[in-house]
């Protein structure tokens, strides 16, 4: 009896509890298939690949907690990538790079603000609005860079690829900072507002929560995170491609849900989605290390994801029908 209480308690009180189990399982499977996984070099090269999705998933998590959805993040990632690749160039200076990193962040904030304006102020439906702006942003990225090419200086890309403070991957520190910032934000008045708006916007409005500003802010945050992901992905690949962000949108949403957040808003956190994003990336790793026939890759990956999504529900069903 007591044991049962504990499981339910963990599942309901800690949305990140189940994602942690999934993450642990996927790490173990990956470790078996790739024994040198925890070598400093391998760990760093994995984490720097995972980071862009983690960043976007954090932004997406905030949007989902606030009761919205942002399917334009991939477009923002692409814009940032094409701006950096065309404006800095392969032989650009470091100073130029940092200047355009700043520009990229502003672009991300602006793109998020456009989403926020239409959704919070004009009260349009989030999914269709961000679908429309995903065309705007994706089109703009393609306009900036019609064909893949350009890039950033290799020396700058190296900073992202090889910096390992305290012999740990750079990504660890970035993720740690994000989690600390989130911990702080969720304890502030804004954090309370965010959950209130996501839970029930009407009720929040009645209790004098600035619903419009909060809804506006979540898209700005998402835009900022997408811009940071765009910078990371550019430093990772070192080159420009207007389609680079297209796969990241739906992945980020899946990552957030695997991370234990609810789609209906008002519940969850950022820790779960971070783990969800890493789990999702590790699944991709496992697929490539398990030497699965190329024809089967998509099916196997999708099936694993569906099982991961279904697992909490299946466990709950079994527990309810059990003794």
């Amino acid at each position: 009896m007591k044991n049962r209480f504990t499981w339910d308690f963990l599942m309901t009180r800690y949305p990140a509890f189940f994602p942690l189990i999934l993450l642990a399982i996927s790490i173990i499977v990956n470790w078996i298939l790739q024994p040198n996984m925890f070598d400093r070099e391998t760990l760093n090269s994995n984490m720097r690949v995972f980071l862009p999705l983690v960043l976007v998933a954090v932004g997406q998590a905030v949007v989902l907690i606030g009761g919205g959805i942002d399917i334009s993040v991939g477009g923002i990632v692409s814009i940032v990538n094409t701006i950096l690749a065309t404006r800095v160039g392969l032989d650009g200076s470091t100073e130029l790079m940092w200047r355009y990193v700043l520009v990229s962040i502003l672009v991300g904030l602006l793109a998020g603000a456009i989403n926020g304006f239409f959704i919070a102020h004009l009260r349009l439906q989030p999914i269709i609005t961000t679908y429309a702006t995903s065309f705007l942003y994706g089109g703009l990225a393609l306009f900036i860079l019609p064909n893949p090419g350009g890039g950033i200086p290799a020396s700058i890309a190296e900073i992202y690829r090889t910096t390992t403070p305290l012999k740990l991957p750079l990504s660890f520190f970035i993720i740690a900072i994000i989690l600390l910032v989130w911990k702080y934000i969720s304890s502030t008045r804004y954090g309370k507002y965010l959950f209130a708006v996501g839970g029930k916007a009407d009720a929040a409005y009645e209790t004098a929560v600035p619903v419009t500003s909060v809804q506006f802010s979540i898209y700005v945050i998402s835009g900022l995170m997408a811009a940071l992901a765009g910078i990371a992905i550019t430093m990772l690949s070192g080159s420009g491609n207007a389609e680079i962000g297209s796969a990241i949108t739906l992945n980020s949403i899946t990552a957030v849900i695997i991370g234990g957040n609810s789609f209906s808003g008002g519940i969850g956190g950022v820790t779960g989605p971070v783990m969800g994003a890493i789990t999702l990336s590790i699944i991709q790793n496992i697929i490539s290390f398990a030497h699965i026939n190329t024809w089967w890759e998509t099916l196997v990956k999708a099936t694993i994801i569906v099982i991961a999504l279904a697992a909490p529900g299946i466990i709950n069903l079994l527990r309810r029908s059990g003794p």
């Binding site: 959805i69 739906l250 949403i253 899946t254 849900i257 609810s262 789609f263 209906s264 024809w295 089967w296 890759e297 998509t298 099916l299 196997v300 990956k301 999708a302 099936t303 994801i305 569906v306 999504l309 279904a310 909490p312 529900g313 299946i314 709950n316 069903l317």
Partner: peptide, 24 residues
């Protein structure tokens, strides 16, 4: 309905499974 997966990700996952099955 039964596993309480949000429709967006459930159908997105199924889309992947179906596409995968087509490829196979």
């Amino acid at each position: 309905t039964f596993l309480k997966i949000s429709p967006f990700v459930m159908t997105l996952g199924m889309s992947g499974v179906v596409t995968g099955a087509i490829i196979v």
